[in-house]
Structure formats: structure tokens, C-alpha cells
């Protein structure tokens, strides 16, 4: 894996190069500033497959550099790992919003370094396989139902893996987090009908509906595969969990979705949620997101099993029943 490591301290660059080499990554280029990194990126013949960026640097900082790299179509999905001290995690909101995929912490720990780089390599390999599979084809191949493909041009969208890293790494502080999962209950049916990139279009449209509701709030959103869109609201928002979920379902209800063949699709969606304090452990934050997904999937299963009917009753009544639980 070809890596570009950027840090303004030559000793840290030497340390990073040594640790990378020990972990089996020998193809490493270094840059002493964001400006130098951008020059290297624009002139290099063979593209990089992973970036390691220090956050605080004089001039353009690592977060801004991350945004610059992400804006380059060549590196739209390339792993970008931020290098940060444990007590610097307050920069993470900005870093993930700029497109960071993951992070490694200083002081460096060999095991953590290997794990993070291993994940990055896995991610990079999947992207390369996807690109190779699509090469030369006039239309994109339909993704598998379970594939957690990246949302396209959706504000604050990040890779599913990055969302998990964010939940693990985000620091404690004031304000809680609200985790939501939108489940497309009839994903299997829509996926079966869809051809080409129809299915991605439907998922992106649903994500866009979510972002309409969350406009002005701080959030990250990700497609998790199997018709699930996960999103986490961090910081203040003037809506309760239930209000967010209701607004999303209303917004989705107004979508006019048509596939490439002109046929209309009606997405049946349910929204699960769960909230957590930032002060809780990282495993608790991950568990909270899973709880939101399970919440949505549980309701969707109930819909599929006929316990709740989505189409045949007034919307408000339906929402009351959804939030009242499956026994309602």
C-alpha cells in the first residue's frame, strides 16, 4: 500500500516511517507540510493508496488538507487516517466532517498501528476491486444489497467504517448524541426491481431526505448496507428524537422516486433511534448505534410480518404505533 505521511516534525516522520516499515509498509512518501503534500499529490505519477495526516501543522492544518485531498476525485474513497494525541480528539468532529476515515493515536502503539493500517488496507483493496469491476462498463453494476456503498454527494456523509471509528474516538464533553437508523423495509423488493444504479439512487434519495430534516444541525450520515442508513446527531438540535424520526418519515413520504424504466417505487421506511451521553464509553456509543439499527430493523420485520401495516392507515396513527412499540 502506497502511503503519504504528512507531519511538520521530521522526527515524527522518521518515527512514523519506521513504525510503518515494521508493520510491513515500505512504500512510504513523506511531506513536512500540507503545502508540500499538495505539491507531491499533484505531481506524483503513481497515486497514493492511504494518507496519514497530523492534525496541527503551521499554515494549512491536517483537517484542511484532508478536505483538499477528499475533493480530488482520485482520492474520493482513499483511506485518510488522522494522527492525533488521545487528548486531541476534540478535533475529530472537524476531521471526520472533512472526510477522514479513521485515526491513529500518539504515543504510537504498534498493535493499534497495525490494526488501523490493516483496516485502511482492507478498505483500499475493496475500493480497488470495485473500481476494477466497474472499469470499462457503460453503467455501474448494481451493488449487492448488503454492500455499504458510499453515499454520493450527500452532506456530511462518511464511510460506514468511518462512522464507527468516529463513535469509538469521539471525546466526552458537553451534550449528548442521538443515533438514528433509517431502515428501508422493502429494500429487498426495490433492490430486486432496480437495475444499474437505480438502487444507489433510491438510497441516496432517502439520505437526502434525512439531510433536509437535519439542515443546520451537526451530524454524520452513512449507508450501512441492507437498506439501512445510519446517522448520528452530535451537539444541540431543537428537535426530540421522536420529532426527528417523524420529520424524516414525512420527508421520505414526499419523495417521488422513479427508476430508470419510469416505474415508481414507494419506499417503506421506519426510523429507529437511541440516545447516549458523550461521557459513556466508546463501546456504549457503538452499542447505541446498533440499538438504533436493531430498533428500526425490528419494526421493519414487524411490518414484513404483517404486525404493522405501513400503507393502509393515516400517517400520524402509524407513527404513534411505531413509537409506541410493536405491541401497540
Amino acid at each position: 500500500m502506497r502511503i503519504l505521511a504528512v507531519d511538520d516534525d521530521p522526527i515524527i516522520l522518521e518515527l512514523v516511517t519506521t513504525v510503518l516499515s515494521d508493520a510491513g509498509y515500505e512504500d512510504v512518501v513523506t511531506a513536512g507540510s500540507a503545502e508540500q503534500a499538495m505539491t507531491v499529490i499533484s505531481t506524483v505519477e503513481r497515486p497514493f493508496e492511504c494518507f496519514l495526516l497530523d492534525i496541527l501543522m503551521p499554515g494549512i492544518d491536517g483537517v484542511a488538507l484532508c478536505g483538499e485531498i477528499r475533493a480530488n476525485p482520485l482520492y474520493r474513497a482513499t483511506p485518510i487516517l488522522m494522527v492525533s494525541r488521545l487528548d486531541e480528539k476534540h478535533h475529530f468532529d472537524r476531521a471526520f466532517a472533512a472526510g477522514a476515515s479513521d485515526y491513529v493515536t500518539k504515543p504510537f502503539d504498534a498493535t493499534e498501528f497495525r490494526v488501523r493500517l490493516g483496516l485502511a488496507e482492507q478498505m483500499q483493496r475493496q475500493q480497488a476491486q470495485l473500481a476494477a469491476a466497474q472499469h470499462g462498463k457503460p453503467d455501474r453494476e448494481k451493488p449487492r444489497l448488503s454492500e455499504a456503498f458510499m453515499l454520493d454527494d450527500v452532506p456530511f456523509s462518511i464511510a460506514n467504517h468511518a462512522l464507527e471509528s468516529y463513535l469509538q474516538g469521539v471525546p466526552g464533553g458537553v451534550g449528548g448524541m442521538q443515533c438514528f437508523a433509517l431502515k428501508l423495509a422493502n429494500a429487498v423488493e426495490i433492490h430486486r426491481k432496480a437495475s444499474g444504479n437505480d438502487y444507489e439512487f433510491v438510497i441516496n434519495s432517502l439520505a437526502d431526505a434525512v439531510t433536509e430534516v437535519l439542515a443546520g444541525a451537526n451530524y454524520f450520515i452513512s449507508h450501512s448496507g441492507n437498506g439501512v442508513i445510519s446517522f448520528v446527531v452530535h451537539g444541540a438540535i431543537d428537535m426530540t428524537e421522536e420529532e426527528v424520526a417523524r420529520a424524516v418519515m414525512t420527508e421520505v413520504g414526499m419523495l417521488d422516486l422513479r427508476l430508470a424504466d419510469g416505474s415508481q417505487v414507494s419506499p417503506d421506511v421506519v426510523v429507529g433511534s437511541s440516545s447516549v451521553s458523550r461521557l459513556t464509553s466508546r463501546s456504549a456509543r457503538i452499542a447505541t448505534m446498533r440499538e438504533a439499527v436493531m430498533n428500526a430493523e425490528g419494526i421493519a420485520d414487524a411490518v414484513a410480518g404483517g404486525k404493522i401495516v405501513l400503507q393502509e392507515q393515516p400517517r400520524d396513527s402509524l407513527l404513534d404505533r411505531l413509537f409506541g412499540g410493536l405491541a401497540a
Binding site: T18, V19, D22
Partner: peptide, 21 residues
């Protein structure tokens, strides 16, 4: 950096960087 020190071939390189630091 105890976990680093436990790596097989890493320590001599780390020692050299430490001297530079």
C-alpha cells in the same frame, strides 16, 4: 512505548530516533 519495544526489529531503529530527538 512498551508495546513498540517488544517488536522484534524495531528497537534499534527507535533507539537511533531517540538519539536524534
Amino acid at each position: 512505548m512498551s508495546s513498540m519495544a517488544s517488536e522484534r526489529n524495531l528497537q534499534p531503529a527507535l533507539d537511533a530516533i531517540r538519539v536524534k530527538f
